[in-house]
């Protein structure tokens, strides 16, 4: 379903088909338009999700862009709206506006190595890019997924990470910030994995998503390894409201994050991140 500008401000009712608890505070909803039809989007785009009577929040799409029959969102309950969203049950209705924003440049990365660096719930906006890359696996060199989480219990999409790691054509490395001796994997920051990942920096496109500080350090680590700042992409988060660059709430220097982003090159983002309180 493609919306034009006029009706981009009107939420469309979607029915909640499935709810899955991913982590103690994170859940995934599968939605279908009540009026029927498909929902098409590109990896990296987001929707404004409206919990009726509570409020509206921007949430990245976490499903497969090749699967238009169902809309998938993974959300961490951290505030009034997302907590209310987490209380919704199968069969209830939620308002959807979107999709909005500039996507991950997955197709532009054809022919190069693709490195995905995710931190915490930042894996959710990157999952559609991973699905797209896997669907076009023969068009990339190496496909590397580097993921950092707080603890082993906070690893998002754990079964999928294990499945991807089980393939012979994807390198998946996971690290956690804290662990006990029951954890047999890596411990340390995700930037350490960037230094160890097996990819050719001169021919790499990197997609980075997570907390802003993590993205900053991950992008710096990628550039230090030799990846061009123009080939490193980050997904920014600001106070998105209208989704189409009218209201100005998400203005970030010369950009509206909702319309010119949320995906920016590190070349575009790094000078702005250096400006305090922007």
């Amino acid at each position: 379903m493609k919306m034009d500008v006029q009706d981009s401000m009107v939420p469309v009712p979607f029915r909640i088909e499935k709810v899955r608890r991913e982590l103690s505070d994170t859940f995934t909803m599968e939605l279908k338009p009540e009026a029927g039809g498909a929902f098409r989007f590109q990896a990296g785009q987001f929707n404004m999700l409206y919990v009726f009577g509570v409020g509206e929040v921007p949430i990245s799409i976490s499903g497969d862009p090749g699967e238009s029959g169902v809309l998938v969102h993974t959300t961490r309950a951290v505030g009034a709206v997302t907590r209310a969203m987490g209380q919704l049950e199968v069969g209830e209705t939620i308002g959807v506006r979107g999709p909005f924003g500039k996507p991950w440049p997955v197709e532009q990365a054809f022919g190069s190595d693709l490195v995905i660096v995710a931190g915490g719930v930042g894996l959710a906006p990157l999952r559609p890019a991973i699905y797209q890359a896997l669907a076009n696996r023969d068009k990339f060199g190496k496909l590397v997924v580097l993921y950092g989480a707080r603890t082993a219990d906070d690893i998002l999409f754990r079964k999928e990470l294990e499945r991807w790691r089980g393939r012979f054509d994807v390198e998946v490395k996971v690290t956690v910030d804290r662990a006990t001796d029951r954890w047999a994997g890596n411990v340390g920051v995700v930037t350490n994995l960037v230094a160890r990942g097996g990819f050719d920096p001169m021919h790499t496109t990197a997609l980075v998503c997570g907390p802003e500080i993590m993205m900053r350090f991950a992008a710096q680590a990628l550039v230090k390894r030799g990846v061009s700042p123009a080939s490193v992409y980050v997904s920014m988060e600001r106070n998105m409201k209208c989704g189409v660059g009218f209201c100005g709430h998400c203005q970030w220097g010369p950009h509206f994050v909702c319309r010119n982003g949320p995906v920016f090159t590190w070349e575009e983002a790094s000078p702005l991140l250096a400006v305090r309180e922007l």
């Binding site: 951290v78 009034a80 719930v121 950092g148 707080r150 350490n192």
Partner: peptide, 17 residues
């Protein structure tokens, strides 16, 4: 540097919304 980043607990609860 890595230890300092780890101490920040980056993956804790983010902005409320």
């Amino acid at each position: 540097h890595a230890a300092r980043i780890q101490m920040l607990d980056l993956y804790g609860p983010g902005p409320r919304r």
